[in-house]
C-alpha cells in the first residue's frame, strides 16, 4: 500500500510542484498519473523512493514512512523505470540488470563484477520474460534500440521482485507500437509478481488501455481520480489545457 498524505513540494526557486496531495494506491494496482509537463508527476514519483524530499506531508510504502532514516528499507521494496532509460552505456545488458541487485551482493562481488550465479540466472529469466534474447546478454546497452533498452530498464527494476514499481514516463521516447509492447510487459510482469505500479504517462489511449486507475494532475493538484472509463473529455481538456503559466514556461 502506497500512501500520500497532504504532500507538498516547493523548490528553492519558488516553483510549487505539488500542493497538498493525498491519495492511496492499494497493492497490485496499475495506477497511471496523467498530467501535462510541469504538472508534478516526476516530483511525485521521485518522492516515493527518496530522490526528492517533500516540503510538507508524509508518504509511506507498506506502512514504512519515507524518511531518510528508513530510505534503505524503502528502496528494497521500490524499483524505478525511467523516461530516458538511465542505463549505463558502457556496461553490458547483464551488468545493467545486475545493478538493480547490488544490495544483495558483498563488496568483493560488487567491486569485481563477479555476480552470484543465482542472481545471474534470475537476470536471464527476467530478460526472457521481457522479450530479450541470449544474444543480447553481453552486448553493450548502447547497441540496442530504444525499445530494447527500456526492456533492460524493466528487467533491472524487477530483478529483486519489488512490491512497488515507479515508472516515470517509461514510453515517452518510444513509438506507439513499442510503447504498447513495453506497457504490456510492465503490466504482465507486475501482475505476475503481484507488484503495484505507479506510472506517469502522456498518452491518453495507453492510459485508458492499461490503467486500473487514473489520477490526473494539474498544477500540482489532483483534478481527477477514478477508473479509466470515468475519465471525461472535459477533464482531459482541463489536464492538457495550456494556460499563461504553461506558455511562459515553454
Amino acid at each position: 500500500m502506497l500512501k500520500f498524505q497532504e504532500v507538498s513540494k516547493k523548490y528553492l526557486d519558488g516553483t510549487e510542484a505539488l500542493k497538498t496531495v493525498s491519495f492511496e494506491v492499494p497493492p497490485s494496482q496499475f495506477c497511471v498519473i496523467l498530467g501535462s509537463s510541469g504538472a508534478g508527476k516526476s516530483t511525485l514519483l521521485k518522492m516515493v523512493n527518496g530522490l526528492i524530499s517533500p516540503s510538507t506531508g508524509s508518504i509511506s510504502v507498506n506502512q514504512i514512512p519515507v524518511i531518510p532514516q528508513r530510505i534503505k528499507s524503502i528502496r528494497q521494496q521500490v524499483a524505478m523505470i525511467h523516461q530516458q532509460f538511465n542505463l549505463v552505456g558502457r556496461l553490458s545488458v547483464e551488468k545493467n540488470i545486475m545493478t538493480g541487485a547490488l544490495r544483495e551482493m558483498n563488496i568483493i562481488q560488487k567491486l569485481l563484477h563477479s555476480f552470484p550465479i543465482d542472481l545471474r540466472r534470475r537476470a536471464c529469466q527476467i530478460m526472457e520474460s521481457v522479450g530479450l534474447e541470449e544474444k543480447h546478454l553481453n552486448r553493450r546497452v548502447t547497441e540496442l534500440s530504444g525499445g530494447q533498452q527500456q526492456r533492460v530498464g524493466i528487467a533491472r527494476a524487477f530483478i529483486l521482485n519489488p512490491s512497488l514499481i515507479l515508472a516515470d514516463e517509461p514510453v515517452a521516447s518510444l513509438d506507439p507500437r513499442i510503447s504498447r509492447d513495453i506497457l504490456s510487459i510492465l503490466k504482465r510482469s507486475a501482475s505476475e509478481k503481484g507488484a503495484t505500479v505507479l506510472c506517469s504517462l502522456h498518452q491518453l489511449d495507453l492510459a485508458r488501455e492499461f490503467a486500473d486507475r487514473i489520477v490526473a494532475f494539474k498544477h500540482g493538484q489532483i483534478i481527477f481520480d477514478g477508473a479509466p472509463d470515468d475519465l471525461k473529455e472535459s477533464v482531459i481538456e482541463k489536464t492538457y489545457e495550456l494556460d499563461d503559466q504553461g506558455l511562459n514556461e515553454e
Binding site: 523512493n49 528494497q76 525511467h82 530516458q84 532509460f85 542505463l87 549505463v88 556496461l91 545493478t99 547490488l102
Partner: peptide, 24 residues
C-alpha cells in the same frame, strides 16, 4: 541519469559512483 537510477536501487554513494560514473 544512470547515477539517479543506481541510487534509486538502494546502492551506496560509492557503489553509485563505481557502477554509474566510472564506466562513463
Amino acid at each position: 541519469g544512470p547515477q539517479e537510477a543506481i541510487e534509486a536501487t538502494g546502492a551506496s554513494p560509492f557503489m553509485t559512483l563505481y557502477y554509474s560514473v566510472v564506466p562513463q
